[in-house]
Simulated scan of single mutants.
Amino acid sequence: MNRNLVLISALSAGLMTAAAGVAQTAAPAVPSAPRPAAAEAAPQAVPAKIALIAFEQAVFATNEGQQAVQAVQKKYEPKKAEIDSLSKEVDSLKKELQSAPATMTDAQRQVKVKAIDAKEKSLTREAEEAQSSYNTDLQEAYGQVAQKVAVVAKKYASDNGFTMLMDVSSQASNIMWIGPNIDVTKAVVEAYNASAPLPAAVAPAPAHTAAPTTKK
């Protein structure tokens, strides 16, 4: 009954804009020559050029996104090892109970059952708490990268003459067919990686022969 922490898809970052209201003070009317009312620009039909992007996939596919995920996973490696160990302990206790001799009394069996039940509850609680914390940290890491990737995605769509950019990563879509050159996910990932290169990895220090230690 191994319970491993699993990577679950993060929620797409919602980019919200708030319009600030500007108060205007009324001023006394100044007589002036009548001016023709400014004509409002009429909407114009333009050729549609729509780009699709799997935004969540793009964020996690960037070098920075992959690095962020690895950092979160590394943080939870000790907790994962602890949960795996507890899970193995519960499995071992169950096997012991199943292979118990027929001479075991009901009282003895009940003691073992209670011990297993307590261990299982502890395992469930530890796993749920760890998963919740893991998801929170992963969402936070995703959000930080997503904000920057969104800027690059919009710029890419604008620079390449697209009239609309649609995120198809999570929500249901009625799209039945996509042309081969309309999905810009990979192109945006490459554009972001080019605009935000990761620092070069630090070369490992030369290996040194460890000095012999004295056992205590």
Score class of each variant (00 low, 15 high):
Gly14Ser: 14
Asn135Met: 07
Arg109Gln: 13
Val168Tyr: 06
Glu82Ser: 15
Gly14Glu: 15
Val149Thr: 02
Pro204Asn: 13
Ser158Ala: 15
Gly65Cys: 03
Ala37Leu: 07
Pro43Ser: 09
Gln24Thr: 04
Ala127Met: 07
Val46Arg: 13
Gln144Trp: 00
Glu190Tyr: 02
Gln108Pro: 11
Lys155Ile: 05
Lys154Val: 05
Tyr134Met: 03
Asn63Lys: 14
Thr105Pro: 13
Leu165Gly: 00
Val30Ala: 08
Val46His: 07
Met104Lys: 11
Leu138Arg: 01
Ser158Leu: 15
Gln144Ile: 04
Val149Glu: 02
Tyr192Met: 00
Tyr192Lys: 01
Asn4Ala: 14
Pro47Ala: 15
Met164Gln: 12
Leu123Cys: 00
Gln67His: 06
Gln66Asp: 09
Thr105Leu: 13
Leu52Val: 02
Ala150Cys: 06
Trp177Ala: 07
Tyr134Glu: 03
Gln44Met: 04
Ala196Val: 05
Gln108Phe: 13
Phe55Cys: 02
Leu11Pro: 13
Ala10Phe: 00
Thr163Glu: 05
Ala210Glu: 09
Lys121Thr: 11
Glu82Ile: 07
Glu129Lys: 11
Lys186Ile: 04
Pro36Ile: 10
Ala37Ser: 03
Ala157Trp: 07
Lys88Thr: 10
Pro28Val: 08
Ala54Tyr: 10
Phe55Ser: 00
Glu56Met: 00
Ala61Tyr: 02
Lys112Phe: 01
Ala23Trp: 04
Ser133Val: 10
Phe60Gln: 02
Asp167Ala: 09
Pro28His: 05
Asp91Pro: 06
Ala38Asn: 06
Ala51Ile: 01
Val152Trp: 06
Gln24Lys: 09
Lys75Phe: 10
Ala33Val: 14
Lys216Val: 08
Gly143Pro: 11
Val46Ala: 13
Gly179Lys: 15
Ser158Phe: 14
Lys88Arg: 14
Val145Thr: 11
Leu93Gly: 04
Ser195Ile: 07
Ala42Cys: 03
Val145Leu: 09
Gln44Asn: 03
Glu129His: 05
Ser92Met: 08
Val69Arg: 12
Lys88Ile: 03
Glu190Pro: 07
Glu126Met: 12
Arg125Phe: 15
Asp117Leu: 01
Gly179Pro: 12
Glu82Leu: 13
Met164Leu: 09
Ser92Ala: 12
Ala39Trp: 01
Glu64Thr: 10
Asp159Ile: 11
Ala107Val: 10
Ser12Ala: 06
Ala141Ser: 04
Pro204Gln: 13
Pro204Ser: 14
Ala54Val: 04
Leu93Lys: 12
Asn63Ser: 15
Tyr76Arg: 01
Ala20Gln: 12
Leu52Asn: 04
Thr213His: 08
Ile8Val: 12
Gly14Asp: 15
Asn193Arg: 09
Lys114Glu: 14
Gln67Leu: 06
Gly14Pro: 14
Glu126Arg: 10
Tyr76Gly: 01
Pro78Leu: 08
Gly21Gln: 10
Met1Lys: 03
Lys80Asn: 15
Leu86Phe: 01
Ala68Gly: 13
Pro34Ala: 12
Gln44Thr: 05
Pro101Ser: 10
Ala115Cys: 05
Leu93Ser: 08
Ala29Val: 11
Val72Phe: 11
Tyr142Ser: 01
Leu97Tyr: 00
Arg109Trp: 09
Ala130Asn: 08
Asn2Leu: 14
Thr136Pro: 00
Glu89Thr: 11
Pro43Leu: 08
Lys74Ala: 15
Tyr142Trp: 07
